[in-house]
């Protein structure tokens, strides 16, 4: 029986965790006046489910050998992961004000050498899943029962290296590998679906031999069910959860804004966004 997950150790709801992640990401965005806040708000529910339902970890020992590995392939989502790591108690909350500053442990793009809990240096897109394959192979060779989670973006589906890793994970029957795709349909130049021939996502992964699920990535119950199914699937295959998320989720005036890779937030709007969150604190 694996170590109790953070969620099971506490009575804080996932909704409250997701709220906390959104709030902390906005606070960091305010520090710099910018950041990938739209992505962070969109992926907050996925991270809440990962860190407070699925992942086996020890907040006081981020490099504990028995932990599940969580790779942030999308390095620019660092603001979201920092928020989750603070929420999980791996990073201290009082460092929020250092976000993106000189000498901060929370640089704008995620790097393994800067931040406790950041497993790899992401940011060059299309790297995470291949590294996850190597980690999953390594854990199997050591006889460990840990999972490797790789969080990637829909844009990374355009990278050829992603598909090298997809095929390899099937070849090596990596049942300890869970890939999470944050499908917000937004990459730097516009909608992901307009950029490369993405579509029919779950059938595509299934055709490559994966256990594939597609869920509403802002529905916590659906996410919990999907993560549970991915963790308990008895077949010796890698697993993917394609999470359809909404950029800026939880802050309606930002949700309605013309969504771009970098959502525009005016200086006075950070407080407004935080006020909206604070008006409805989940139980």
């Amino acid at each position: 029986m694996p170590e109790l997950t953070a969620n099971l150790r506490s009575n804080v709801s996932l909704a409250r965790r997701a709220w906390g992640i959104r709030r902390k990401a906005l606070q960091m965005g305010e520090v710099q006046g910018q950041g990938y806040v739209g992505q962070a708000l969109g992926v907050a529910d996925v991270l809440a489910t990962s860190y407070f339902h699925a992942l086996n970890l020890r907040a006081d020992d981020p490099e504990w050998e028995g932990r599940d590995r969580f790779l942030l392939s999308i390095g620019h989502y660092a603001i979201a992961l920092y928020a989750a790591l603070i929420e999980a108690g791996i990073l201290p909350e009082d460092e929020i004000g250092t976000y993106g500053m000189d000498d901060s442990r929370m640089p704008m793009s995620g790097m393994a050498s800067y931040t406790p809990g950041m497993e790899i240096t992401g940011g060059s897109l299309g790297h995470g899943l291949g590294i996850a394959v190597g980690m999953a192979l390594g854990l199997k060779a050591k006889g460990g029962d840990q999972f490797v989670y790789n969080l990637m973006s829909d844009g990374e589906l355009g990278e050829g290296s992603t598909w090298e890793a997809v095929m390899s994970a099937t070849q090596h029957r990596l049942s300890n590998l869970i890939c999470i795709v944050d499908f917000n349909n937004q990459q730097a130049d516009g909608p992901t679906r307009d950029a490369l021939a993405v579509g029919a996502e779950a059938p595509k992964w299934e055709a490559f031999g994966w256990h594939a699920q597609e869920v509403d990535g802002n529905d916590l119950d659906a996410l919990v069910a999907a993560f549970d199914a991915a963790r308990t699937c008895p077949e010796p295959k890698p697993r993917v959860i394609i999470c359809n998320t909404k950029m800026c989720k939880g802050v309606p005036f930002l949700e309605e804004r013309e969504i771009t890779h970098f959502v525009r937030v005016e200086p006075d709007e950070w407080t407004r966004a935080l006020d909206i969150l604070d008006a409805e604190v989940p139980a």
Partner: peptide, 24 residues
Amino acid sequence: RFYQMGMAEQLLMSAAAGMAHEGF
């Protein structure tokens, strides 16, 4: 202890990095 990664050099290097992360 031998891993055939197929004709996929980008994966070869990424997976090698992953195994190094795990102490190999």
